[in-house]
Amino acid sequence: MTLHEQPLLRVALIAAALLAAAMVLSLVVGAYPLPFSKLLSGELNDAEWSVLTQLRAPRVLAACAGGAAFALAGAALQALFRNPLADPGLLGVPSAAGLGAAIALIVMGAGAALWLGALAGAALALAAMLFVVRRGAGPMAGGTVTLLLLGIAINAACAAGLALLTALASEGQLKTLSFWMLGSFAALDWPVVVAMLACTATGAVALLAHANALAALALGERAARTVGVDVQQLRFRVAVVTAAMVAIITAFCGGVGFVGLAAPHIARLTVGSSPRRTLPVAALIGAMLCVLADVVARSIAPPIELPVGAITAVLGVPLLVSLVTRKSQQP
Protein backbone atom coordinates (compact mmCIF):
# COMPACT_ATOMS: atom_id res chain seq x y z
CA MET A 1 0.00 0.00 0.00
CA THR A 2 1.40 3.37 -0.96
CA LEU A 3 0.46 6.20 1.32
CA HIS A 4 -0.85 9.51 0.08
CA GLU A 5 -0.72 11.99 2.88
CA GLN A 6 -2.21 15.40 2.36
CA PRO A 7 -0.01 18.42 3.11
CA LEU A 8 -0.44 19.53 6.72
CA LEU A 9 -1.09 23.18 5.90
CA ARG A 10 -3.87 22.41 3.43
CA VAL A 11 -5.66 20.01 5.79
CA ALA A 12 -5.25 22.42 8.71
CA LEU A 13 -6.69 25.31 6.66
CA ILE A 14 -9.66 23.21 5.52
CA ALA A 15 -10.31 22.01 9.08
CA ALA A 16 -10.03 25.58 10.40
CA ALA A 17 -12.46 26.84 7.74
CA LEU A 18 -14.96 24.09 8.60
CA LEU A 19 -14.57 24.90 12.29
CA ALA A 20 -15.23 28.59 11.61
CA ALA A 21 -18.33 27.70 9.60
CA ALA A 22 -19.56 25.43 12.42
CA MET A 23 -18.98 28.23 14.94
CA VAL A 24 -21.01 30.73 12.88
CA LEU A 25 -23.77 28.14 12.50
CA SER A 26 -23.74 27.58 16.23
CA LEU A 27 -24.09 31.33 16.85
CA VAL A 28 -27.23 31.70 14.73
CA VAL A 29 -29.09 28.43 15.41
CA GLY A 30 -31.08 27.78 18.56
CA ALA A 31 -34.33 28.31 20.43
CA TYR A 32 -33.97 32.02 19.74
CA PRO A 33 -32.70 32.22 16.12
CA LEU A 34 -30.39 35.09 15.21
CA PRO A 35 -30.51 35.80 11.44
CA PHE A 36 -27.11 35.56 9.82
CA SER A 37 -27.62 38.88 7.99
CA LYS A 38 -28.17 40.67 11.29
CA LEU A 39 -25.07 39.06 12.73
CA LEU A 40 -23.01 40.34 9.78
CA SER A 41 -24.39 43.87 9.86
CA GLY A 42 -24.19 44.05 13.64
CA GLU A 43 -27.74 45.48 13.84
CA LEU A 44 -28.90 43.50 16.84
CA ASN A 45 -31.38 44.68 19.43
CA ASP A 46 -30.63 44.37 23.13
CA ALA A 47 -32.29 40.97 23.54
CA GLU A 48 -30.46 39.54 20.52
CA TRP A 49 -27.20 41.06 21.67
CA SER A 50 -27.51 39.46 25.08
CA VAL A 51 -28.39 36.08 23.54
CA LEU A 52 -25.29 36.36 21.39
CA THR A 53 -22.83 37.46 24.06
CA GLN A 54 -24.24 35.76 27.15
CA LEU A 55 -25.62 32.48 25.77
CA ARG A 56 -24.26 31.59 22.35
CA ALA A 57 -20.69 32.90 22.26
CA PRO A 58 -19.64 31.33 25.59
CA ARG A 59 -21.00 27.92 24.69
CA VAL A 60 -19.45 27.97 21.22
CA LEU A 61 -16.05 28.77 22.70
CA ALA A 62 -16.55 26.24 25.49
CA ALA A 63 -17.35 23.58 22.88
CA CYS A 64 -14.19 24.53 20.98
CA ALA A 65 -12.04 24.34 24.11
CA GLY A 66 -13.61 21.09 25.27
CA GLY A 67 -13.48 19.36 21.90
CA ALA A 68 -9.91 20.44 21.26
CA ALA A 69 -8.81 19.34 24.74
CA PHE A 70 -10.35 15.86 24.45
CA ALA A 71 -8.88 15.44 20.95
CA LEU A 72 -5.41 16.57 22.03
CA ALA A 73 -5.50 14.29 25.06
CA GLY A 74 -6.63 11.35 22.91
CA ALA A 75 -3.98 11.95 20.26
CA ALA A 76 -1.21 12.27 22.86
CA LEU A 77 -2.30 9.20 24.82
CA GLN A 78 -2.61 7.09 21.67
CA ALA A 79 0.99 7.97 20.82
CA LEU A 80 2.18 7.48 24.41
CA PHE A 81 0.52 4.07 24.82
CA ARG A 82 1.35 3.14 21.23
CA ASN A 83 -2.27 2.09 20.95
CA PRO A 84 -4.94 3.53 18.64
CA LEU A 85 -7.65 2.53 21.13
CA ALA A 86 -6.43 4.85 23.89
CA ASP A 87 -8.75 7.72 24.82
CA PRO A 88 -8.83 10.40 27.55
CA GLY A 89 -10.88 8.11 29.81
CA LEU A 90 -8.06 5.57 29.90
CA LEU A 91 -6.26 7.14 32.87
CA GLY A 92 -9.46 7.19 34.93
CA VAL A 93 -9.60 10.97 35.25
CA PRO A 94 -13.11 11.56 33.82
CA SER A 95 -14.67 8.82 35.93
CA ALA A 96 -12.91 10.12 39.05
CA ALA A 97 -14.29 13.56 38.22
CA GLY A 98 -17.72 11.95 37.84
CA LEU A 99 -17.52 10.34 41.27
CA GLY A 100 -16.32 13.59 42.83
CA ALA A 101 -19.19 15.45 41.18
CA ALA A 102 -21.71 12.87 42.42
CA ILE A 103 -20.47 13.11 46.01
CA ALA A 104 -20.53 16.93 45.88
CA LEU A 105 -24.02 16.91 44.37
CA ILE A 106 -25.46 14.67 47.07
CA VAL A 107 -23.63 16.30 49.97
CA MET A 108 -23.72 19.98 48.93
CA GLY A 109 -26.13 20.31 46.00
CA ALA A 110 -25.74 21.42 42.38
CA GLY A 111 -23.84 24.41 40.99
CA ALA A 112 -20.27 25.34 41.80
CA ALA A 113 -20.09 22.50 44.33
CA LEU A 114 -20.43 20.03 41.48
CA TRP A 115 -17.48 21.59 39.69
CA LEU A 116 -15.39 21.62 42.84
CA GLY A 117 -16.25 17.98 43.54
CA ALA A 118 -15.33 17.00 39.98
CA LEU A 119 -12.04 18.88 40.19
CA ALA A 120 -11.23 17.28 43.54
CA GLY A 121 -12.00 13.80 42.22
CA ALA A 122 -9.87 14.31 39.12
CA ALA A 123 -7.05 15.76 41.22
CA LEU A 124 -7.10 12.67 43.44
CA ALA A 125 -6.87 10.39 40.41
CA LEU A 126 -4.03 12.51 39.07
CA ALA A 127 -2.21 12.37 42.41
CA ALA A 128 -2.54 8.58 42.55
CA MET A 129 -1.16 8.39 39.02
CA LEU A 130 1.82 10.61 39.85
CA PHE A 131 2.55 8.56 42.95
CA VAL A 132 2.58 5.32 40.97
CA VAL A 133 4.62 6.71 38.05
CA ARG A 134 7.20 8.19 40.43
CA ARG A 135 7.46 5.23 42.77
CA GLY A 136 6.47 2.12 40.92
CA ALA A 137 7.55 1.99 37.32
CA GLY A 138 11.13 0.92 36.83
CA PRO A 139 13.06 1.85 33.72
CA MET A 140 12.98 -1.69 32.32
CA ALA A 141 9.38 -2.55 31.58
CA GLY A 142 5.90 -2.10 32.87
CA GLY A 143 5.91 1.68 33.21
CA THR A 144 3.20 2.15 30.64
CA VAL A 145 1.41 -1.04 31.63
CA THR A 146 1.41 0.12 35.26
CA LEU A 147 -0.16 3.41 34.24
CA LEU A 148 -2.77 1.57 32.19
CA LEU A 149 -3.63 -0.85 35.01
CA LEU A 150 -3.97 2.04 37.45
CA GLY A 151 -6.39 3.73 35.04
CA ILE A 152 -8.46 0.55 34.83
CA ALA A 153 -8.47 0.26 38.64
CA ILE A 154 -9.57 3.89 39.06
CA ASN A 155 -12.30 3.44 36.46
CA ALA A 156 -13.59 0.30 38.20
CA ALA A 157 -13.49 1.88 41.66
CA CYS A 158 -15.30 4.99 40.45
CA ALA A 159 -17.97 2.96 38.67
CA ALA A 160 -18.55 1.05 41.90
CA GLY A 161 -18.69 4.27 43.92
CA LEU A 162 -21.16 5.81 41.49
CA ALA A 163 -23.35 2.70 41.63
CA LEU A 164 -23.46 2.98 45.43
CA LEU A 165 -24.21 6.70 45.32
CA THR A 166 -27.06 6.37 42.84
CA ALA A 167 -28.85 4.29 45.45
CA LEU A 168 -28.63 7.27 47.83
CA ALA A 169 -29.45 10.02 45.34
CA SER A 170 -32.87 11.57 44.80
CA GLU A 171 -34.61 11.59 41.42
CA GLY A 172 -33.60 15.20 40.71
CA GLN A 173 -30.01 14.63 41.71
CA LEU A 174 -29.82 11.55 39.50
CA LYS A 175 -31.07 13.51 36.52
CA THR A 176 -28.60 16.37 37.07
CA LEU A 177 -25.79 13.90 37.50
CA SER A 178 -26.53 11.78 34.45
CA PHE A 179 -26.92 14.90 32.31
CA TRP A 180 -23.60 16.28 33.53
CA MET A 181 -21.86 12.97 32.97
CA LEU A 182 -22.91 12.87 29.34
CA GLY A 183 -21.63 16.39 28.86
CA SER A 184 -23.06 19.83 28.18
CA PHE A 185 -21.68 23.17 27.10
CA ALA A 186 -24.73 25.10 28.28
CA ALA A 187 -24.89 27.66 31.08
CA LEU A 188 -21.19 28.35 31.39
CA ASP A 189 -20.16 31.83 32.47
CA TRP A 190 -17.44 33.82 30.73
CA PRO A 191 -14.82 33.32 33.50
CA VAL A 192 -15.29 29.55 33.22
CA VAL A 193 -15.05 29.67 29.42
CA VAL A 194 -11.88 31.75 29.58
CA ALA A 195 -10.42 29.27 32.07
CA MET A 196 -11.27 26.37 29.73
CA LEU A 197 -9.70 28.14 26.74
CA ALA A 198 -6.57 28.94 28.72
CA CYS A 199 -6.33 25.37 29.97
CA THR A 200 -6.68 23.90 26.47
CA ALA A 201 -4.19 26.37 24.98
CA THR A 202 -1.64 25.59 27.69
CA GLY A 203 -2.13 21.87 27.22
CA ALA A 204 -1.78 22.20 23.45
CA VAL A 205 1.50 24.08 23.74
CA ALA A 206 2.85 21.58 26.30
CA LEU A 207 1.89 18.54 24.21
CA LEU A 208 3.19 20.02 20.94
CA ALA A 209 6.52 20.64 22.68
CA HIS A 210 6.73 16.86 23.17
CA ALA A 211 5.44 15.91 19.72
CA ASN A 212 8.86 14.82 18.42
CA ALA A 213 9.53 12.57 21.38
CA LEU A 214 6.00 11.12 21.10
CA ALA A 215 6.64 10.45 17.41
CA ALA A 216 9.78 8.45 18.24
CA LEU A 217 7.74 6.23 20.59
CA ALA A 218 6.28 4.59 17.47
CA LEU A 219 9.62 2.75 17.30
CA GLY A 220 8.96 1.15 20.67
CA GLU A 221 10.09 2.39 24.07
CA ARG A 222 13.54 0.84 23.94
CA ALA A 223 14.36 2.05 20.43
CA ALA A 224 12.99 5.49 21.37
CA ARG A 225 15.53 5.60 24.20
CA THR A 226 18.38 4.75 21.83
CA VAL A 227 17.51 7.67 19.53
CA GLY A 228 17.65 10.03 22.50
CA VAL A 229 14.17 10.13 24.08
CA ASP A 230 13.87 10.19 27.87
CA VAL A 231 10.88 7.84 27.85
CA GLN A 232 10.23 7.92 31.59
CA GLN A 233 10.20 11.72 31.70
CA LEU A 234 8.02 11.86 28.59
CA ARG A 235 5.53 9.39 30.07
CA PHE A 236 5.35 11.43 33.25
CA ARG A 237 4.87 14.78 31.52
CA VAL A 238 2.33 13.63 28.94
CA ALA A 239 0.30 11.80 31.60
CA VAL A 240 0.26 14.88 33.84
CA VAL A 241 -0.59 17.37 31.09
CA THR A 242 -3.39 15.29 29.57
CA ALA A 243 -4.84 14.34 32.95
CA ALA A 244 -4.82 17.94 34.20
CA MET A 245 -6.36 19.23 30.98
CA VAL A 246 -9.05 16.55 30.91
CA ALA A 247 -9.74 17.08 34.63
CA ILE A 248 -10.44 20.79 34.24
CA ILE A 249 -12.52 20.42 31.08
CA THR A 250 -14.50 17.48 32.49
CA ALA A 251 -15.24 19.37 35.70
CA PHE A 252 -17.01 22.14 33.78
CA CYS A 253 -18.67 20.36 30.90
CA GLY A 254 -18.82 16.69 31.88
CA GLY A 255 -17.52 13.65 30.11
CA VAL A 256 -18.04 14.33 26.42
CA GLY A 257 -17.16 10.91 25.07
CA PHE A 258 -15.83 9.66 21.76
CA VAL A 259 -14.26 12.94 20.56
CA GLY A 260 -10.95 11.94 22.15
CA LEU A 261 -10.99 8.66 20.25
CA ALA A 262 -12.46 9.74 16.92
CA ALA A 263 -10.74 13.07 16.27
CA PRO A 264 -7.15 11.70 16.34
CA HIS A 265 -8.18 8.84 14.03
CA ILE A 266 -9.75 11.20 11.52
CA ALA A 267 -6.65 13.40 11.73
CA ARG A 268 -4.32 10.44 11.12
CA LEU A 269 -6.29 9.39 8.05
CA THR A 270 -5.68 12.80 6.49
CA VAL A 271 -2.19 13.86 7.56
CA GLY A 272 -0.46 10.65 8.64
CA SER A 273 0.48 9.40 12.08
CA SER A 274 3.25 11.75 13.23
CA PRO A 275 2.05 13.55 16.39
CA ARG A 276 3.62 16.73 15.03
CA ARG A 277 0.86 16.67 12.40
CA THR A 278 -1.85 14.73 14.25
CA LEU A 279 -2.03 16.93 17.36
CA PRO A 280 -2.98 20.26 15.71
CA VAL A 281 -5.33 18.70 13.14
CA ALA A 282 -7.03 16.52 15.78
CA ALA A 283 -7.58 19.61 17.95
CA LEU A 284 -9.35 21.41 15.09
CA ILE A 285 -11.47 18.35 14.24
CA GLY A 286 -12.34 17.74 17.89
CA ALA A 287 -13.43 21.36 18.31
CA MET A 288 -15.55 21.15 15.16
CA LEU A 289 -17.19 17.88 16.25
CA CYS A 290 -18.12 19.35 19.62
CA VAL A 291 -19.46 22.62 18.16
CA LEU A 292 -21.62 20.68 15.70
CA ALA A 293 -22.76 18.24 18.38
CA ASP A 294 -23.74 21.19 20.56
CA VAL A 295 -25.78 22.69 17.70
CA VAL A 296 -27.58 19.40 17.18
CA ALA A 297 -28.10 18.88 20.92
CA ARG A 298 -30.06 22.11 21.29
CA SER A 299 -31.90 22.20 17.97
CA ILE A 300 -33.44 18.71 17.75
CA ALA A 301 -36.16 19.30 20.33
CA PRO A 302 -35.99 22.90 21.59
CA PRO A 303 -36.14 24.04 24.31
CA ILE A 304 -35.02 20.63 25.61
CA GLU A 305 -31.25 20.15 25.49
CA LEU A 306 -29.96 16.70 24.67
CA PRO A 307 -26.67 15.50 26.19
CA VAL A 308 -23.73 16.49 23.97
CA GLY A 309 -21.80 13.29 24.71
CA ALA A 310 -24.56 11.23 23.11
CA ILE A 311 -24.57 13.47 20.03
CA THR A 312 -20.78 13.35 19.57
CA ALA A 313 -21.02 9.59 19.45
CA VAL A 314 -23.95 9.69 17.01
CA LEU A 315 -22.03 12.14 14.76
CA GLY A 316 -18.61 10.63 15.22
CA VAL A 317 -19.29 6.91 14.84
CA PRO A 318 -20.54 6.98 11.22
CA LEU A 319 -17.83 9.48 10.25
CA LEU A 320 -15.09 7.34 11.75
CA VAL A 321 -16.47 4.05 10.40
CA SER A 322 -16.85 5.42 6.88
CA LEU A 323 -13.32 6.87 6.86
CA VAL A 324 -11.71 3.75 8.26
CA THR A 325 -13.47 1.35 5.90
CA ARG A 326 -12.85 3.56 2.86
CA LYS A 327 -9.12 3.62 3.61
CA SER A 328 -8.85 -0.13 4.09
CA GLN A 329 -10.54 -0.86 0.75
CA GLN A 330 -7.70 0.74 -1.18
CA PRO A 331 -5.40 -1.84 -2.78
Binding site: A215, A216, A218, L219, R222, A223, G228, S273
Partner: peptide, 25 residues
Protein backbone atom coordinates in the same frame (compact mmCIF):
# COMPACT_ATOMS: atom_id res chain seq x y z
CA UNK B 1 22.78 3.10 17.24
CA UNK B 2 20.97 -0.04 18.32
CA UNK B 3 19.04 -2.59 16.29
CA UNK B 4 17.24 -5.17 18.39
CA UNK B 5 13.95 -7.00 17.94
CA UNK B 6 11.34 -4.28 17.93
CA UNK B 7 7.57 -4.24 18.46
CA UNK B 8 5.30 -3.58 15.45
CA UNK B 9 4.69 0.07 14.63
CA UNK B 10 1.18 0.85 15.96
CA UNK B 11 0.19 3.38 13.29
CA UNK B 12 0.34 3.60 9.52
CA UNK B 13 3.66 5.16 8.56
CA UNK B 14 5.74 5.05 5.40
CA UNK B 15 9.27 3.68 5.49
CA UNK B 16 10.82 7.09 4.85
CA UNK B 17 9.06 8.59 7.89
CA UNK B 18 10.14 5.56 9.92
CA UNK B 19 13.79 6.16 9.01
CA UNK B 20 13.39 9.86 9.90
CA UNK B 21 12.62 8.82 13.50
CA UNK B 22 16.33 7.94 13.83
CA UNK B 23 16.80 11.66 14.52
CA UNK B 24 13.44 12.63 16.02
CA UNK B 25 14.45 16.07 17.30
Amino acid sequence: AVNASEPPVPFTMNAGDYVALGRPF
